[in-house]
Design a binder for these strands. Sequence first.
RNA 1: CGGGGCGUGGCGCAGUCUGGUAGCGCGCCUGCUUUGGGAGCAGGAAGCCGAAGGUUCGAAUCCUUUCGCCCCGACCA
Length: 507
Amino acid sequence: MAKQGAKKGEERGGKISTREQDYPQWYQDVVREGGLAEPAKVVKGCMVIRPHGYAVWEKIQRDLDARFKATGHQNAYFPLLVPQSFITKEAEHVEGFAPELAVVTHAGGAELEEPYVIRPTSETIIGHFFGKWITSHRDLPMLINQWANVMRWELRTRMFLRTTEFLWQEGHTAHANHEESLEEVIRMLHVYGDFVEEVLAMPVVRGIKTQSEKFAGALESYCIEAFMQDGKALQAGTSHDLGQNFGKAFDVKFQNDAGELEYVWQTSWGVSTRLIGGLIMTHSDDDGLVLPPRVAPIHVVIVPIFRRDDEKARVLEAATILKDALETIDLGHERAAYRDFVRVEIDDRDMRPGAKYYEWERKGVPMRIELGPRDLDKGQVCVKMRVPTAAGEGKEFLDEKAFLDGFRERLLTYQAELLRMARERVAAAQVTLDSWEEFETTFAGDNSTFAWCHWDGTAETEAKIKELTKVTIRCIPLEGQGPAPEPGKCILTGNPSKQRVLMAKAY
RNA sequence: CGGGGCGUGGCGCAGUCUGGUAGCGCGCCUGCUUUGGGAGCAGGAAGCCGAAGGUUCGAAUCCUUUCGCCCCGACCA
């Protein structure tokens, strides 16, 4: 099919499909046009995270890292390569990860005596070192976090949501008893839930995975599940109660205060660059990326407007003064462990202003300021927010002083509005279902939404539902995270159920 | 692993059926004019057509082999 290219009057620049037309294509387009990432192509299933995308990850890291430190964790780093034999020590763990391992068999020009696997996660190697480090109850709790890359040879990949290699953090902790380790599991689940809602403005449901959906090797997996605009669910973070499984597999024992040897109780928890995928599918629209201010690498872009060189000099000078004023503003929380200064970009490239507007909109920058001679004469600024909200819509012409005074409030309102609107989307879309007919209609074809349904608690029923409809049980909600528990009948079998669970198709 | 698609200037593609000087759009470079919602004109640079064999006077095009990537399923943060 011959392509005419952009005709006069047609859209220029990268094309973004609408969500209506082709949702997966829209997602890919937003990632590309937002300058976040591109498929590596030369390396199967991997992506290149471009500077704008990596800057978002850095903001995620900065905030999470502060939260981990505030809850007593320390960062450490363990090897990328794990002896193959380690993986096989925990029975369920092997079974879960064996199919997706990349294995290093040769190095230094010779075949290795024992192959190494490239870590798909680090429970095993960290378990090994915990075994060396922990001997007494005085060594506990051991609270470690690692920022790292991991590799899982997935058969089907999508940028950010599932790539062969991805970046994440993995927390690994060891405790003297189950009560304490479970407390840690729940604590970190809430650290994730709070972070995702406060910083990414992404509403989530906190819950427990079913036995068939839990982490390979865990007793229980807790999770946060996010609602994507196509109705699918995204597991945005997990916190695992590992019990003594890895303690036993790696012989991590300590002497308790009665002098007896016991195995430690461990936890692990992680979030990954997948969060960026969730961020995109929570807020972005047909014009491209939308970033909440707390994760936006650039908060404000100033587009100078001028005709002649003398105007240009005058406008750029004023833009620089405005930028300096804005960049003294700290968006951070009162008690935050870091300062979150406003970042402003002056776009003085030799392009038409209109072209710049579209470009920065595709990149999700929360606020644009147009600054021209007319504004300088009147002492005003022209402001436009990326998404119309209670924080402003359309072009607003504001007195510069008033604008500066209200700036911080405006961005924080915008942040809050993005969360509110995302919550409204979930509230409007979610359904409570009581009959299998309704269920089949709701999930017909590619359709999905958050459905609260009764389930008889058996793995057989869960598997049957998945087989029939591709719908999975996303989680059993924690208290207050779903409808109040009340007895009912299983959506499929009609057998007794204690409470409704969250069902949806998932990424 | 099953099904589908695609490898041709930086990007997106046409050309392949029917072999004959490698093309188009965008982007890029230079200049002038422009600049409050995707600029216009003029000039210019840039490609051993994924790789290897073969057929032919002649191959992007035909034949064989091969490599890679993407999309759709099964597996999964």
